[in-house]
Design a binder for these strands. Structure first.
Lengths: 129, 129
DNA sequence: TCTTGACTTAGAGCACACTCTAAGATGTAT
DNA sequence: ATACATCTTAGAGTGTGCTCTAAGTCAAGA
């Protein structure tokens, strides 16, 4: 199928707002989308797929400017595949490092939760007497 | 030991900037710190410990306003232990959920990395002939 | 015909978490 | 004495990523 979608439909489908979709296009994250006769945007399945991938990059914390660099690479041809690969691999490393950092910091929070749980029990035990 | 530290020493030790330390104090994340005769801040070990815990909350993505809520609870006495516990547990759930989300999105990035790796090999193989 | 609603643009505004500035007080070294 | 570093405050400024506004076009329905 190659049904073309309006911006509203794409917003619903992707969870990004219409504002954000236009913003992403303006800054070059999304290549200029086909237009209907009245000038309204018409998104193809390929466009939506690209937007979904952008979501993956954003949701994993990639800065918009880095996403722009990646987007630019995809537009200039196959000879940038190696560069794209490097960019994604580097991002992957960064994400895994960030997850590990969060887990390490979270373990301190866990420790505190443990402490409060015991403290709470102690207080409750005292008040029973 | 209960050596008192200057703001610069605490900045070095915690990795937060002096600006950030003052900012945290201003917005009530850090309780007002003891002063030397000349009005300069003098941080105790307990203060530094608290700041380190704040770092754990921030590094795991807790918004500053929620940290403020937690800080406020710690100041009004033992009867808020349950509330503090709930806040930390809720945060813990949120962090784990976020990590899972990131991992899910990252797996799409992994898929792309795989695709590009194969694509690159294919291109290299072609050019060998 | 009139209204409603979806869309367009350029550009302004906003929330968050800092980050920096300006002006001034104080302390130490030469 | 003088230079320099370190600190103080209140408040302004910054970067990021949206998010909203205003003014206008266009098409379908009552």
């Amino acid at each position: 199928m190659d049904t073309l979608l309006t911006i509203q439909q794409v917003a619903d489908k992707t969870g990004l707002s219409e504002h954000t979709l236009r913003y992403y296009e303006r800054i070059g994250l999304i290549e200029s989308i086909d237009r209907a006769d009245n000038g309204h945007r018409r998104y193809s399945d390929v466009d939506v797929g690209w937007i979904e991938f952008l979501k993956c990059l954003r949701a994993t914390g990639m800065p918009v400017m880095q996403m722009k660099a990646y987007a630019d690479l995809t537009r200039v041809g196959d000879h940038t595949i190696e560069a794209r690969l490097e960019l994604l691999k580097e991002h992957r490393r960064a994400v895994l490092a960030q997850i590990e950092e969060m887990q390490a910091y979270l373990s301190v929070v866990d420790y505190k939760i443990d402490y409060y749980t015991k403290e709470k029990e102690r207080i409750e035990t005292c008040s029973e007497n």
